[in-house]
């Protein structure tokens, strides 16, 4: 049976965008799941568990990203990452 695949679109809401520290939180969280997780913007798709690739997305406040997880815990991964980006906003100041 094929692995479950889950996807969601999120918007970066903290004013400083996906800079180093938020990227670290994102990568650390993604790393807790067994699923393969990829994040894409309009141009490229990168490994959500690589801090280099995530920071090089250079997602600024207001950017929309697509998160796609593939694996047994894909659903949990998607909801946890969505919460970090849009609800907790990386514990940072929201943008206007």
């Amino acid at each position: 049976m094929a692995e479950p695949v889950h996807e969601i679109e999120v918007e970066i809401k903290n004013v400083e965008g996906l800079h180093m520290r938020p990227a670290m939180q994102f990568v650390d969280l993604a790393g807790k799941f067994d699923s393969d997780i990829h994040v894409s913007n309009e141009e490229q798709s990168v490994d959500a568990k690589s801090i280099m690739q995530m920071t090089m997305l250079a997602a600024t406040c207001g950017t929309k990203l697509r998160i796609k997880a593939e694996g047994a815990d894909a659903a949990e991964a998607i909801s946890a990452l969505q919460e970090l980006v849009e609800v907790k906003m990386f514990d940072e100041t929201p943008g206007k």
Binding site: H19, M20, A58, T60
Partner: peptide, 14 residues
């Protein structure tokens, strides 16, 4: 230089 080229001061400073 990838970072420095992004038009957002928060990112380019990285």
């Amino acid at each position: 230089s990838h970072f420095a080229g992004i038009d957002d001061e928060y990112i380019s400073e990285r």
